[in-house]
């Protein structure tokens, strides 16, 4: 049950997204430097990827797991640096391993104690983050100068993105998308009825791990741009916005990807207008603005729509009462 308005919205977003650079050039006098183009491209690629993957996190009620996992990546960055120096690959692999360990730790706490999910997430989130901070402060006291910029993984530093990073983002992003498409049916079943999936003989433990791994990969790819604290916003905001417009998973994922790409690209462009506006936070603010718009305006579901319907109902009820009274 795909809905036409969702397709239209998607087309409009894509058109607007493509016009973004020329428009901002014409209206605000933005200077299209190489950096701006690379960052905008990286932002929209990352937005599309995290929007698509984030849908599953949101639908499986694991939004906060994303938050915990992205915080948990920080010590991995620091250890990667200690072992291999400043190589992006090593840092990202370290981040992925740490984040994955955080995931296992949450699962272990939940399995073996009576601590509930929220507290388990909180424990992992803040202790991994503290470990990362402790390691980073130690690294920063090293005499060696190559540690400069490591703390950009905390808030994200878009200006550090170069062309090879885009290639990496594109390549791994494509791989994630292919995996999503290959296991589409299984993921869909797992998301909406995990018990049925298990009863139906799916290896739900394995699939669950695969899906969580995709989330971890997405988070790790986004660290450089959005940072460990804000990454979860980019993961879930497009998905929540897309959820308001459609009831079909296919459409939701596509729309979330489009919304994410739009937020990533336009956030990058807006932050390029003023050198004091950091890119990562700006992308999050744009993404949240999209959520706000969707929640108010989405037809059939949004707040505005609900108000109108209530008013209409009330009027009908009143007129009917008058009729029966007369």
């Amino acid at each position: 049950m795909t809905e036409r308005r969702a397709w239209r919205l998607m087309l409009a977003l894509l058109a607007l997204g493509f016009l973004m650079l020329p428009l901002s050039q014409a209206l605000f006098g933005l200077r299209l430097t190489y950096t701006v183009r690379v960052v905008a491209l990286g932002g929209s690629l990352l937005g599309a990827l995290s929007g698509a993957v984030g849908c599953f996190a949101v639908l499986r009620r694991e939004s906060l797991l994303g938050d915990a996992l992205s915080h948990a990546a920080l010590p991995g960055v620091a250890i990667g640096f200690l072992l291999a120096g400043r190589q992006l690959g090593a840092l990202l692999v370290g981040a992925g391993i740490a984040s994955w360990l955080g995931l296992r730790l949450v699962a272990a706490i939940l399995r073996s104690t009576r601590i509930k999910q929220d507290a388990a997430l909180g424990i992992v989130l803040v202790s991994f983050f503290a470990a990362g901070i402790a390691l980073l402060t130690t690294i920063q006291s090293l005499p060696d100068a190559s540690q400069a910029g490591l703390d950009s993984f905390i808030f994200g530093q878009a200006a550090a993105i170069i062309e090879s990073d885009i290639a990496l983002l594109g390549g791994i992003g494509l791989l994630v998308m292919v995996l999503l498409a290959l296991f589409w049916k299984e993921f869909k079943l797992l998301t909406f009825d995990a018990d049925f999936a298990r009863a139906d003989g799916l290896r739900s433990g394995l699939l669950d791990a695969l899906l969580s791994t995709l989330v971890v990969i997405t988070i790790v790819l986004g660290l450089q741009l959005a940072g460990v604290i804000l990454m979860v916003g980019l993961l879930i905001a497009p998905a929540i916005a897309a959820r308001q417009w459609t009831h079909s998973l296919e459409q939701m994922v596509l729309l979330a990807a489009a919304l994410g790409a739009f937020a990533g690209g336009s956030g990058a462009v807006i932050s390029a207008l003023d050198s004091d506006i950091p890119t990562g936070p700006m992308i999050i603010v744009v993404a949240f603005a999209l959520v706000l718009l969707s929640i108010t305006l989405a037809p059939g579901r949004g707040l505005l729509w609900n108000q109108l319907r209530q008013r209409k109902n009330r009027r009908q009820l009143r007129s009917r009462r008058l009729e029966s009274g007369a």
Binding site: S63, G233, Q244, F288, L303
Partner: peptide, 28 residues
């Protein structure tokens, strides 16, 4: 309570958004 967004998603939206605005304000 509006039913449009679940609790985890509402919190997950609130953390990074408020933090992002604060970071923008601090650096600006």
């Amino acid at each position: 309570r509006s039913g449009l967004v679940r609790q985890d998603a509402a919190l997950g939206l609130a953390f990074p958004l408020l933090f992002a605005i604060a970071v923008i304000l601090v650096s600006r």
